[in-house]
Design a protein around this nucleic acid. Structure first.
Lengths: 235, 235
DNA sequence: ACAGTATTTATCCAACGGGTTAATTTCTCC
DNA sequence: GGAGAAATTAACCCGTTGGATAAATACTGT
């Protein structure tokens, strides 16, 4: 009886609540964009009352920015966890490509959030001093790796690290963020296991071939039977 | 007087009206996304009454799909206008990259519309038999060019034309569609003249170096002074 | 045990937004 | 020149949505 009374109507858990709200908001914003997101749905998904969103985080825009900052914080954190500087240059680049690819695969909401924010021309991101100060360690990593690669003769040419960083991100990002329309256009599922494996091989092959001047193993799958096979295996 | 009476309140112009509606809708959807777009604003921008949208095109979703189909129709049409098959292989690829880059630059709404549609997981595009039947001539063009390049020895390796098509699109698309957030992150304007020139040079260099095995002129800008210059010119 | 504060619930509402209804005006063709 | 069809306008409808208010409940320190 006294115990029954102890089974209270609700418990307090401010930190937990805040986290559940942000997680729910991340789902909602990535699934529906900023304008399409519904505050009520976020509350429901978080198992919270709508008032809680405003109490713990803020209005819709502040909620969105908090989610965005959290997303950048997470990827930067994982990036820092990698140590690629000391690998031999081609291997470092390969690992970088694989990390980028796999991170995007594991975190599709990150892609959606970036798309949404870019549709808004980074209006919100510009206001975030927090994100502006979160530099990716990869640019400096690429800079030193490329320099080493050129010096050792592994790489045939130097390249602007920012350009290379963007290109590596682009090859994965576009394929995944636009897989829905591309799958319709090409009439084949770009996200099935085989397609994904081929994509990773293609990207690694492309970038490493450009840097080293030698076509890389994975890139050559298509090479063997010269007339058709890989060349014709498409569409 | 009789003339004054002839200055009517409005004229009829069904085709013109339809075009103005679609143009206004394209602006609105690309600027605000599907959920963010406002039917009233489209009407205002088209200089029309809201009822006209429903009369000439349909409801918001149908309006959106019509815009999307128009966008695909336009790019396919321009693509067909190109004749790259007969150029020597490296030149054909270079022209393809330049066309893609310039088309995206000239038609930023196309990028926004694709982003929006992908956020919706191509829900609307899947319903469009029209778009599904609009195949890009570029895939076949790439297929034959790559084959010729391999045979002639210009290219060191065959490659899946769909993968290459996606990669070429990706390098331009991501840079432009994400330029807002990237510009904030890197603290520099990725859309100024110099940055755009460098980007095009980088993309051409990357892809052609990968295919030919030789670092291409434009890609080598960075090469000359081996220690710093291009490598350090960044960020 | 109780006062004060932090957290949560239960309602409410004014503005907005997509869509509709019905009346009005212009055009066409006989 | 007028009847019928096509195009356009004006006004309204009504569910949704972000946000606000106020009351209730749980926790904390004393």
């Amino acid at each position: 009886m006294a115990k029954a009374k102890r089974t209270l109507k609700w418990q307090r858990d401010p930190e937990g609540m805040r986290l559940r709200i942000l997680e729910a908001a991340k789902q909602e914003f990535s699934a529906h964009g900023l304008a399409g997101a519904r505050v009520d749905r976020i509350a429901a998904k978080a198992g919270a009352n709508k008032r809680m969103l405003y109490y713990h985080v803020g209005n819709k825009d502040e909620l969105y920015l908090a989610v965005l900052e959290g997303a950048y914080d997470k990827i930067r954190s994982e990036e820092r966890g990698l140590d690629l500087e000391h690998l031999d240059p081609p291997e470092a680049i390969r690992r970088l490509i694989e990390f980028t690819w796999n991170y995007f695969l594991r975190n599709p909401e990150f892609l959606s959030l970036l798309q949404t924010e870019n549709l808004a021309r980074a209006k919100h991101l510009k206001k975030s001093t927090k994100v502006k100060s979160m530099h990716s360690p990869f640019v400096e990593m690429i800079r030193t790796v490329v320099r080493r690669g050129v010096d050792s003769g592994d790489f045939q040419v130097a390249v602007d690290p920012v350009q290379l960083y963007i290109s590596i991100a682009a090859l994965s990002f576009f394929y995944l963020s636009n897989s829905a329309t591309l799958s319709v256009i090409f009439g084949r599922d770009l996200l099935d296991k085989k397609a994904k494996d081929e994509r990773l091989a293609h990207m690694s092959g492309l970038v490493l071939a450009a840097l080293t001047g030698k076509s890389v193993a994975l890139f050559e799958i298509a090479k063997a039977p010269k007339q058709r096979s890989a060349v014709a295996q498409t569409v």
